[in-house]
Computed example of a mutant assay.
Amino acid sequence: MYKLFSLRLKSPAPTALGLFHLTRNKLRSTILDWWYATSMIGYEFSVPEDCLKVVSTIFGAQGSLQSNDFQSLAFSVETATPTDTINTAQFIRDGDTIVSAGGTYELGFFTPEKSRNRYLGIWYGKISVQTAVWVANRETPLNDSSGVVRLTNEGLLVLLNRSGSIIWSSNTSAPARNPVAQLLDSGNLVVKEEGDNNMENSLWQSFDYPGNTLIPGSKLGRNRITGMDWHLTSWKSSDDPSIGNISITLIPGGYPEYAAVEDSNVKYRAGPWNGLGFSGLPRLKPNPIYTFEFVFNDKEIFYRETLVNNSTHWRAVATQNGDLQLLLWMEQTQSWFLYATVNTDNCERYNLCGPNGICSIDHSPRWVSEAQRFEDAGDKKIMVQQEYC
């Protein structure tokens, strides 16, 4: 993280064309480019401290930009140590990151596998394989490394492209006075008022907008007061984090349960909560890795996991084929271990055997359909077991 020197313009920022006409070398172009990219919101920009000596020379020597265009040439100098927080006078460029206090999570720009696009996301900070758990601009990727993230005075996180256009933005639940954005060690990116650590007062948080991954501490369910729906959506592919055709969502009403939905069709169900677990998830039981809870009250309905040991890396991922994979990071092999697949009971696949069908898990993966159970053989009935319904 560079030490940053803040400048504020008295007058509106010139156009990009005018700025580049002013530049005569790479250093000048870089400074002016930083200025233009970040001046789109609030007309503020920052430059590395080692460039301070040339700033006044560059701007003062040009006809259209004089020293009296600035309120000050020495507002503040920020620290160079890694941080988990940015304020409205700071920004994150492609190549820069912020890191949660314990180093567990990191936020910045990344490229998935074979893709050429750039995305703003959160990934694990302490493992050797970059693994994204949240992506901001899933539907609006950058095609170069020009991305810049700013926090506005209104408390909005905005992602700007090369032309200064906003391609992704957060929202806010209340007017902001002195907002900051902080990456917590839970993996939650939170916009809040500086000094206010009450999560219920947060202006915005990434946990309210999960992607394909459920991490410990985040919720899967619904806020019954606000209508906020916390559900998972698969990536289109391992190279493309845009929204796929699978969602893991809560089906409310009566006895709520979770289901995997593919193109509006239920693929499988978890079954209702029985007080200890979900009836259709036999592998969901007490274990040494995480504890789990299901909360059902007037305000919220949600499922949530909590790590037994915070040094463990654990995630649940909605895959493109409709499964929910539970993955555990193994330090010995430096790889993700498939701990379990939630959809292990294929009889929970919705409508698999058709109306009045009978599914026999004892013969999995073979099922018996009511319409196919018997066939005539003279005077007696012979049960026929079909491999598929």
Rank of each mutant, 00 (worst) to 15 (best):
A340D: 14
I251E: 02
L327H: 00
R269G: 03
V149T: 05
G95I: 07
G253F: 10
R162T: 02
Q90H: 00
R224A: 06
L73F: 15
T81S: 14
D362W: 09
L19Q: 05
I358F: 02
R222M: 15
F5M: 12
P175C: 02
C51K: 12
G102D: 13
L184I: 00
S360H: 09
Y43K: 11
D323H: 08
N117F: 04
L338Q: 13
D345Y: 08
E305S: 05
R162M: 06
I248S: 11
D263S: 07
S100M: 03
A16L: 11
L4I: 00
G63L: 08
N137D: 08
G42R: 01
S360T: 03
L73A: 04
I98R: 03
S76C: 10
F91S: 14
K380T: 12
A316F: 15
K3R: 15
Q372G: 08
T312Y: 15
I41S: 10
E293Q: 15
I58N: 05
N178G: 06
A340C: 02
N351G: 05
L157N: 03
F91D: 09
F294E: 08
I122G: 00
G254T: 07
N351F: 11
N356M: 07
D185A: 08
G95H: 01
Y2M: 02
Q205F: 00
D239R: 09
T81E: 13
A61Q: 13
K285P: 01
D240K: 05
D94T: 10
R24Q: 14
A181H: 05
F20M: 10
L338C: 05
A377Q: 10
Y43S: 12
W336L: 05
H313Y: 13
K26G: 07
R269W: 03
P355L: 06
D144M: 04
A371Q: 15
S64G: 08
G103W: 06
Y209P: 00
S264D: 02
G217F: 06
K267S: 11
T97F: 06
I382R: 07
A174K: 14
K285I: 12
N143G: 03
E44S: 13
K3V: 02
I246D: 04
P241A: 05
E293A: 09
I361H: 11
D33T: 06
L9Q: 05
I166K: 15
K126H: 12
N161S: 01
E300W: 15
E154D: 07
I167R: 02
W329T: 01
W123H: 10
D196E: 09
S128E: 15
K3N: 10
Y119V: 04
H363M: 12
G60D: 13
S335H: 09
V54I: 14
P179I: 04
S169K: 11
E387N: 14
N351L: 11
G63N: 10
T249L: 03
G275N: 00
Q90K: 04
I31E: 04
S72A: 03
P48T: 03
M199K: 08
S39D: 04
F20E: 08
W230F: 10
P288W: 02
Y124R: 09
L307W: 10
K26A: 12
K192Q: 15
A260H: 00
N153H: 13
